[in-house]
Amino acid sequence: MLTRRHIRVKVMQCIYALIQSKDDSLEKQQKFLRTSIENMYNLYLLLLSLLAEIQQMTDNQVKLSNKSYLENTKDNYPNKNKFVNNRLLQQIAGNKSLQGELENRKLKNWYLNEEYVKLLYKEIVESDTYASYMRSPKDSYDVDRNVILELYKNVIAPNEKIYDYFEDDKLTWVDDIPIVNTFIVKQLKKAKEDQLESFFLPPLLKDDADMDFALKLLTKTLLTDAELEKEIEGKTPNWDKDRIAEIDSILLKMAICELLNFSSIPEKVTINEFLEIAKEYSTPKSSIFINGILDKLVKEYKVDGKLKKMGRGLL
Rank of each mutant, 00 (worst) to 15 (best):
2 L>D: 04
6 H>A: 13
8 R>V: 11
8 R>H: 00
11 V>K: 05
17 A>T: 02
22 K>H: 04
22 K>M: 02
28 K>Q: 06
31 K>R: 11
32 F>L: 10
41 Y>R: 14
43 L>N: 05
43 L>W: 05
45 L>Y: 01
59 D>F: 11
61 Q>L: 14
71 E>G: 00
72 N>H: 05
74 K>H: 10
78 P>N: 01
81 N>H: 10
86 N>L: 03
88 L>R: 03
89 L>S: 07
98 L>W: 04
101 E>W: 00
106 K>F: 08
107 L>E: 06
107 L>M: 01
117 V>A: 02
120 L>T: 05
123 E>W: 04
127 S>M: 03
128 D>R: 05
132 S>G: 02
135 R>C: 04
138 K>Q: 11
141 Y>E: 02
149 L>G: 02
149 L>D: 03
151 L>Y: 00
153 K>M: 13
154 N>A: 03
155 V>R: 08
156 I>E: 11
162 I>K: 07
163 Y>V: 11
167 E>T: 11
169 D>P: 00
171 L>Y: 10
172 T>L: 06
172 T>W: 06
182 T>M: 09
185 V>P: 02
187 Q>F: 09
191 A>R: 04
192 K>F: 01
197 E>N: 12
198 S>H: 05
198 S>N: 07
211 M>S: 09
212 D>E: 15
214 A>I: 09
220 K>D: 14
225 D>Y: 06
225 D>A: 01
236 T>Q: 00
245 A>C: 08
250 I>Q: 02
251 L>M: 11
256 I>M: 07
256 I>L: 13
257 C>V: 09
258 E>A: 08
260 L>M: 10
261 N>M: 10
262 F>V: 08
263 S>N: 08
264 S>D: 14
264 S>V: 12
272 N>P: 02
277 I>P: 07
277 I>S: 05
279 K>R: 13
282 S>R: 06
284 P>G: 06
284 P>M: 05
287 S>E: 15
287 S>N: 15
292 G>L: 07
296 K>S: 15
303 V>K: 15
304 D>V: 03
307 L>Q: 11
310 M>R: 12
